[in-house]
């Protein structure tokens, strides 16, 4: 199966699909806005109510969805390479539990300031660092130990979160809704903060794309090829967690994007990270943008969080992948 000429096509396709979803995201809503009006208001802003709807409500929302989806997909691809485990996701080493506790603490301690997002951001980073420090041996870190430490830290932090939620039942629904994950009522400031953090993380990650290919061959072979394995693993772990935390900052905990999108891209385009990372960003952004649109369109009372849609779509797709892989009798793609 030749992949050489295909990746250019894949890039073009992914980019077009993302643009399509972004435009659709601006057109679609309680008041549909036709395509030519969207183009007109984007070129000439500040023309009454449609401009406000486009610029202050729909555009930040769909851009945020694309950013979060793209960021989570890249973070997932990095974690899967780092842990050499195709079942890893961005939250696997404690980020989700840390974010949950951070958000809950922020809500309990300073309920009036609405600090759940920054709390989640800090909590996610702190939990990953804690797992990393706990898994450090004599100057070494085994990635298996890191998964186990992340799991243990996650269980402990989640139990504290649950305790806090039960002590303050009036906040239960606020925190629970946040944890399911969704993109609702974001503003440009939040988008800018998250995008800034993501750009920093992506600039750190990109030069290590080939190193990640080497890590797929195992830590020992990466060492022989000239990769300072421990240092690269640490840098990538922190950068991927920054990316995850920046996504969580906007959206809460959106599941399955970070797990499923890297899989889909590998099936289409192979596991080479020099192509996988940028493609995962485009496809992840497109996917979550679409999920957000679907979440808005489902006719129920009140909005459905996008995180519910991704789980609902991503879960079955992942099972389908597993079944198919088993039939093919081979590794994960």
């Amino acid at each position: 199966m030749a992949r050489a000429g295909r990746s250019t096509l894949n890039f073009a396709g992914a980019l077009l699909a993302l643009l399509f979803v972004l435009v659709l995201g601006v057109m679609h809503g309680p008041t549909p806005i036709p395509f030519h009006t969207v183009v007109d208001r984007l070129v000439h802003p500040n023309q009454g109510l449609t401009s406000v709807i486009i610029w202050d409500i729909r555009l930040p929302q769909i851009v945020a969805a694309a950013l979060v989806g793209g960021g989570l997909a890249v973070a997932g691809a990095v974690m899967q390479a780092l842990l050499k485990n195709p079942l890893a996701d961005p939250y696997i080493v404690g980020a989700s539990a840390g974010a949950g506790l951070g958000a809950t603490l922020a809500q309990e301690l300073v309920p009036l300031l609405n600090m759940m997002a920054p709390g989640a951001f800090l909590g996610a980073l702190a939990a990953v660092l804690l797992s990393y420090l706990l898994s450090r041996g004599r100057g070494t870190t085994s990635m298996l130990t890191l998964i186990l430490a992340g799991y243990a830290v996650g269980v402990i932090l989640t139990s504290v979160t649950t305790f806090l939620m039960l002590m303050n039942r009036e906040d239960l629904s606020t925190i629970f809704a946040w944890e399911v994950g969704g993109i609702d009522g974001v503003n440009w400031t939040q988008v800018a903060v998250s995008a800034g953090l993501m750009i920093i993380a992506l600039i750190v990650i990109w030069p290590f794309a080939t190193d990640m290919n080497a890590l797929l061959l195992g830590e020992e072979q990466a060492h022989h090829l000239g990769i300072p394995v421990r240092r690269v693993q640490f840098i990538l772990l922190i950068a991927a967690s920054l990316l995850t935390a920046a996504a969580v900052y906007i959206s809460g905990l959106i599941g399955f994007v970070g797990l499923v999108i890297p899989h889909i891209v590998r099936r289409l385009n192979g596991p080479n990270h020099r192509q996988l990372l940028p493609l995962a960003f485009l496809v992840g952004g497109m996917f979550l943008g679409l999920a957000e649109l679907l979440a808005e369109s489902i006719p129920v009372i009140g909005p459905i969080p996008a995180g519910l849609v991704t789980a609902f779509l991503g879960g079955p797709y992942f099972l389908y992948l597993l079944v198919k892989q088993n039939q093919r009798k081979g590794g994960f793609a």
Binding site: T210, N213, L216, G218, Q221, G270, P271, G331
Partner: peptide
């Protein structure tokens, strides 16, 4: 170190399917 020493392991298994070309290219990392 990798400029001085190259190593061919006994076996290598990977769950990810890099191509022959992509594996060989990794020799140029150093």
């Amino acid at each position: 170190r990798a400029k001085l020493i190259a190593f061919v392991p006994q076996t290598l298994d990977t769950q990810f399917d890099l191509t022959v070309k992509e594996v060989i290219e990794l020799g140029g990392i150093n």
